[in-house]
């Protein structure tokens, strides 16, 4: 979406005809034709065709950083809601320190928010881990939810957009791949202006040269 409008794929639409093309993600071959199986943008790299989805709910991938909410406690771990088709599981063994199975609730209770990473993709749902720097329970700050397909836009190229907002608002921002964003600042005022800035990015996500517009927006103190 950066330079020019990329070609759009509609489910069932023939993207390319010819035996030489290879079907990638969300495409399939019927006879000579490569057809799209999801609504999105066509990405063509050489002979390899794939569709990048633009809407719909989040599907977890390995090593994704996500924000989730504890919904249940079992004898050997926690059940986590991550806004995906399935709930995720955080095993006791993936907690950074040893806990006996009686005191699970003392460390992470129902309703707590955690920053975690997808460890394993199972047939139904995923396993999570909170072993790693910065991962674990989120105690303060605020959470906002955006469309998970807009996450790459909010992060920007190599994190350019997030660091730009961070610089101007003095807040820590962690963008989960599932579209849940954790904002932490010294004051509530800062957090609110960060929230506004992120919502602005989401709203303007299809505009070209968004980083420049964003700079202007932030210099004006959050006025459009």
């Amino acid at each position: 979406m950066n330079e020019q409008i990329k070609p759009v794929a509609i489910p069932g639409e023939i993207i390319k005809t010819g035996k030489e093309y290879l079907p990638g993600e969300w495409t399939m071959r019927i006879g000579d034709n490569i057809i799209a199986t999801k609504y999105g943008i066509i990405d063509e790299s050489g002979k390899f065709l794939r569709v990048i989805p633009v809407s719909g709910i989040y599907t977890p991938r390995r090593s994704d950083l996500i924000v989730g909410r504890i919904t249940d406690i079992t004898f050997n771990g926690w059940v986590v809601d991550v806004d995906a088709p399935y709930s995720a599981f955080l095993p006791l063994a993936e907690y950074p320190k040893f806990i006996s199975s009686e005191e699970l609730a003392e460390y992470l209770d129902i309703g707590d928010l955690i920053l975690c990473q997808v460890n394993k993709n199972k047939r139904k749902g995923v396993d999570l881990t909170i072993k790693g720097r910065g991962l674990g329970k989120l105690d303060d700050g605020m959470i906002i939810k955006i469309n998970p397909n807009k996450v790459p836009r909010v992060i920007g190229k190599e994190g350019s957009m997030v660091s730009l907002i961070k610089n101007y608002t003095n807040c820590e921002i962690t963008v989960g791949q599932n579209g849940i964003i954790w904002i932490k600042g010294k004051e509530l005022k800062d957090e609110l202006s960060t929230k506004k800035a992120i919502e602005f990015v989401v709203e303007k996500s299809s505009v070209n040269g968004l980083t420049e517009i964003m700079k202007e927006y932030l210099e004006n103190g959050g006025k459009k």
């Binding site: 979406m1 409008i5 759009v8 509609i10 639409e13 609504y39 999105g40 943008i41 633009v54 809407s55 469309n147 397909n149 807009k150 836009r153 996500s205 299809s206």
Partner: peptide, 17 residues
């Protein structure tokens, strides 16, 4: 018509809401 509105929507919003 279905294809047309879907394409227009994506061009307008960049997908999603």
């Amino acid at each position: 018509l279905q294809v047309k509105v879907l394409k227009e929507y994506l061009e307008k919003t960049g997908g999603g809401d």
